[in-house]
Computed example of a mutant assay.
Amino acid sequence: MRLLQVESGKIEEFLSDDDIPSYAILSHTWGGEEVTLADWEDMEEGKLRRMQGYAKIRYCRDQAMEDGLKWVWVDTCCIDKRSSAELSEAINSMFRWYRNATVCYAYLSDVSGSDDIKQSMSKSRWFTRGWTLQELLAPSLVTFYSMEWQSLGTKSELLQLLSSITLIEEEFLLSKDLQHASIAKRMSWASRRDTSKIEDRAYCLLGIFDINMPLIYGEGKKAFRRLQKEILEATPDDHTLFAW
């Protein structure tokens, strides 16, 4: 796991879970110009600052520093996506990384702090993306921020609103063991969400179902069939998958 040091801006790799320090983690939706690991390591800082995806990393670092944390994890620049092996390991570990974070900052880039919060949050793109489902469920503490990085409230403070938007029961939003939810129920949570790549419709659910499997980009819809097979093998007594 790579982490970004908030003060120096250096990215360090931790090979053992026992060595990983306390960290904040960012949840967001991808835009057109994200800062990759290669950009962070090789590009001049002046050019980095002009990239569209830089601001939310800066916000995340500043907030972590204010919260007394020295490290942050941001998927855009903390995973070397040039390595298929590293990408596979990261996606299979991501639910655990979000669960183990001290705090998750959920950045809603299409919500303004001056808007009516209930109305604008309910229309936010963040709630339509496949990857953000586990980013909502896994961490015990999630704080939502507007496009200006104004705090909109925590997961517990916004519980009723989040439940009405996502149709997820409050007990599961409050980190109740997801294994207590049937397969069909967990599938229903993801049904209104989408991903840019068809394979990610399966891969973004690995942590939700506590499944590990290799990634094969290019396999298309076969990815979801592989996921279903793995789920059936892991939970043979839950037949609700067939009703989905």
Score class of each variant (00 low, 15 high):
1 M>V: 08
2 R>N: 09
3 L>H: 06
8 S>F: 08
8 S>Y: 04
11 I>A: 01
13 E>M: 10
13 E>N: 11
13 E>A: 13
17 D>V: 02
17 D>G: 02
19 D>N: 14
20 I>G: 10
21 P>W: 13
24 A>P: 07
26 L>T: 06
27 S>L: 04
27 S>Y: 11
28 H>K: 09
28 H>F: 12
33 E>P: 00
34 E>P: 02
38 A>H: 15
39 D>L: 03
39 D>Y: 10
39 D>F: 08
39 D>E: 05
40 W>A: 14
41 E>R: 15
41 E>I: 09
44 E>K: 14
46 G>T: 14
47 K>Q: 13
47 K>I: 08
49 R>Y: 12
51 M>R: 15
52 Q>Y: 10
53 G>Q: 03
54 Y>D: 01
54 Y>C: 00
54 Y>E: 01
54 Y>N: 00
55 A>K: 12
56 K>L: 07
57 I>A: 02
60 C>L: 08
60 C>Q: 07
61 R>A: 09
63 Q>I: 00
64 A>E: 13
67 D>H: 08
68 G>I: 01
73 W>M: 12
74 V>S: 06
76 T>S: 15
77 C>A: 09
77 C>V: 09
79 I>V: 15
88 S>C: 02
89 E>A: 14
89 E>C: 10
93 S>I: 05
100 N>K: 15
102 T>S: 14
102 T>W: 11
105 Y>F: 09
105 Y>K: 04
109 S>G: 08
110 D>W: 08
112 S>P: 00
114 S>Q: 10
115 D>N: 15
115 D>H: 15
118 K>R: 01
119 Q>D: 14
119 Q>I: 07
121 M>R: 02
122 S>F: 04
122 S>G: 05
123 K>N: 13
124 S>M: 06
124 S>L: 07
135 E>I: 08
138 A>T: 06
140 S>I: 03
141 L>Q: 14
144 F>C: 03
146 S>R: 06
147 M>K: 13
150 Q>R: 12
152 L>M: 04
154 T>M: 00
154 T>A: 00
155 K>T: 07
158 L>T: 03
158 L>W: 06
161 L>A: 08
161 L>E: 12
164 S>G: 04
166 T>K: 09
169 E>F: 00
169 E>I: 00
169 E>M: 00
171 E>Q: 12
177 D>V: 06
178 L>S: 05
181 A>T: 14
181 A>H: 09
183 I>C: 06
187 M>W: 14
188 S>V: 00
189 W>Y: 02
189 W>A: 00
190 A>W: 09
191 S>T: 11
191 S>W: 03
194 D>E: 07
194 D>M: 06
198 I>D: 02
198 I>L: 06
200 D>A: 02
200 D>S: 06
200 D>G: 04
201 R>N: 13
202 A>G: 10
202 A>W: 05
203 Y>E: 11
203 Y>H: 10
205 L>H: 04
206 L>S: 03
207 G>D: 09
208 I>D: 05
208 I>Q: 02
210 D>E: 15
212 N>M: 05
212 N>W: 08
213 M>L: 13
216 I>M: 03
216 I>V: 11
217 Y>G: 01
222 K>W: 01
222 K>E: 06
224 F>P: 00
226 R>S: 01
228 Q>C: 13
230 E>R: 11
231 I>W: 05
235 T>M: 05
235 T>S: 04
235 T>H: 04
236 P>F: 12
238 D>I: 12
239 H>K: 11
241 L>D: 11
241 L>S: 05
243 A>D: 15
244 W>I: 06
244 W>G: 00
